[in-house]
């Protein structure tokens, strides 16, 4: 829009094609959370999928591991404009949980220990989302969502719900926590869908 800052040069002169628009490269791993960090013991942990008809399937920690995990190498993008490239995770593909219920739902709400929620289209996560419990070869820190979080790396990271404990399948879309508080219903970093109306 034609507002330039004459003395501003910026850090990088070449656009990194791996960075979505408006993002900068971060080497640390910043933490963003709306409240205190829940501390959940793996022995008490449970994860459920609930269909739109109310059918519920649940897994404890070992049952989750038994579904079969895989390694995931991916970039991650936070709406606060940092991106981290080439991160390594280990987790169970979300499809393996979804396969356990009959559903015609088109959307889901992820719920977390502590009360966080976030919504997304079901199609959006098939084959592209994991229940992640390791980061860079270590158990996932509570600050970063451990013992397990959703990992939906092609959307802004607030969709990758920390401390996730259920996926509620829904016939119609509904806004989750940040989606009610100013942020996009969808959150594609490549389309820069950060906020309401963007």
């Amino acid at each position: 829009m034609g507002i330039f800052s004459p003395g501003f040069s910026g850090r990088s002169r070449e656009r990194n094609p791996e960075l979505p628009p408006g993002q900068y490269l971060e080497t640390g791993f910043p933490v963003l959370t709306a409240g205190p960090t829940p501390r959940i013991d793996k022995r008490d942990w449970e994860f459920s999928v609930v269909s739109e008809t109310g059918e519920r399937r649940s897994w404890d920690w070992q049952a989750m591991l038994d579904l079969g995990a895989e390694d995931v190498a991916t970039d991650i993008h936070c709406v606060t404009a940092w991106s981290k490239l080439g991160t390594h995770w280990r987790g169970v593909p979300i499809d393996r949980f979804l396969d356990a219920v009959d559903t015609n739902a088109e959307y889901l709400m992820a719920h977390s220990y502590g009360g966080y929620t976030t919504n997304m289209p079901l199609e959006e996560i098939k084959g592209r989302a994991w229940l992640a419990y390791e980061f860079e070869g270590e158990d996932l820190d509570p600050e970063h969502g451990g013992p397990a979080r959703l990992l939906v790396p092609h959307l802004y990271l607030w969709k990758s719900a920390k401390w996730v404990n259920s996926l509620q399948l829904m016939a119609a879309d509904a806004p989750g926590f940040w989606e009610q508080n100013g942020y996009s219903m969808h959150g594609d970093p490549w389309l820069e869908e950060r906020y309401w109306g963007s």
């Binding site: 900068y24 971060e26 640390g28 910043p30 933490v31 963003l32 959370t33 709306a34 409240g35 205190p36 606060t80 404009a81 940092w82």
Partner: peptide, 9 residues
């Protein structure tokens, strides 16, 4: 308890 964190960016 509402939190907001400032990363070192």
């Amino acid at each position: 308890v509402r939190t907001e964190r400032f990363g070192a960016s």
